[in-house]
Design a protein around this nucleic acid. Structure first.
Lengths: 221, 221
DNA sequence: ATAGTATTCAACTACTTTCTAAAATAGTTA
DNA sequence: TAACTATTTTAGAAAGTAGTTGAATACTAT
């Protein structure tokens, strides 16, 4: 009892698995997350994901064939970027499922904290510090995400730009950074960088998602 | 220059690929889509996806290990269901990317129409018929999705229940069905079934997504 | 018990994916 | 033109994935 629909459905799901297959490799997922923060060349990506340029190129080809990324050649360099807004949201949805379903991820995060260096701040602590003007709150997500909604009174310094914008931050205050959610690593990386540069820095236990989920009205623009 | 973060990140992305790998098989994706419409037993699923029970069971195990589905044994039968709301949204996000990025999907849909039997109705046509009371509009998505927002004046008959609720539909009118979007096959399957049962039936070219995208206020509840 | 049914498991083969290393391509500079 | 750089391609070995078959498990009914 094979209906005309069935052949179609098979073809459709085969196409959709082009997307999921392309995302089924840790380095490719990491690549997408990096590209979500901004375009990059092959060489830069290779360094960031810790693979050979040849491998990186192959992975990028896989992503491109699935139309998850686009590339543009200018001179010697090929710059890759995320294909569009929907890919961005797909990554987000994936993180959400990971967050809600994979206990293993919880554990990874907890282990990270066991190292002690990355003890997170609770919302209460952070808000108190902020009210007493002992700290500044920094949103290290890409600018677009900040614009779409951020914690009130936070300033935007995307992780990618942090290195060049250190002079905007007060050395004497505590820098509190946050990103998307509990297990988004942008904030951790920011803390790492800031401490290297001699700042006092900590990250918020919760991310924007948790704030908005618990009823805090986010600012936009 | 490997930072403490890097090890964590690797572990995290490895965990996230458990999700995408589990979704990287056409039959497993189809299985998730079916489970999104309601829980099913292994045998039923096997029939619906067109595989042996043994294979189906193995695929279900893969999905379960990734925590995308849950199972419950009662008596002889094991019933599988989608793990939670977020998995649902992940599937949705995936369809959206497919819709926006994969020209191949467009083509599959167009090919289906070339077969002629499934010529879709435009919104204008449908609305005209509806105003003249020559047709009824049926939303064949799962009840939850209907409740979350549907085209005004549509009634809800989930595809899964259509077979048992045929007597609610007027034989003399044209049945216009719609589902999520252009290439969601729920509506096509509904049309197929309705025609088999002697109804006149067609499907809307657009789905809820397109309606809401073009500014139509959806009804809820 | 015994037979029967739904589901899972194990072992095997065929196929696909991934990494590496080396070669090829394409654009730039001297 | 040749030398150089960024990227892509290719071929091959190693690892992983998928479908089949037949057997094992677990529950029900007699």
């Amino acid at each position: 009892m094979s209906t005309p629909c069935d052949a179609l459905k098979d073809a459709l799901y085969e196409q959709l698995t082009r997307l999921t297959s392309a995302m089924s490799h840790p380095k490719r997922l990491l690549t997408l997350d990096l590209l979500a923060q901004g375009p990059r060349t092959v060489e830069v990506l290779a360094r960031e994901i810790g693979m050979s340029v040849a491998s990186t190129s192959q992975h990028l080809r896989a992503l491109k064939q699935a139309r998850l990324v686009e590339s543009e050649k200018s001179g010697l360099y090929v710059t890759y970027r995320l294909a569009d807004e929907y890919v961005y949201r797909l990554l987000d949805a994936l993180r959400d499922v990971g967050d809600s379903r994979l206990a293993e991820i919880e554990q990874i995060v907890r282990q990270a904290r066991a190292g002690r260096a990355f003890e997170p701040m609770t919302r209460q602590e952070a808000m108190q510090c902020l009210r007493k003007r002992e700290s500044v709150l920094v949103d290290v997500r890409p600018k677009e995400e900040y614009d779409a909604g951020h914690i009130p009174s936070a300033i935007s310094i995307p992780l990618a730009e942090l290195d060049q914008r250190l002079e905007e931050l007060p050395k004497e205050k505590l820098i509190v950074v946050y990103c998307r959610g509990t297990y988004c690593f942008l904030a951790l990386q920011a803390v790492e960088l800031l401490r290297q540069k001699g700042f006092r820095a900590r990250h918020l236990e919760e991310g924007v998602r948790d704030f908005s989920a618990s009823g805090v009205k986010l600012e936009t623009g």
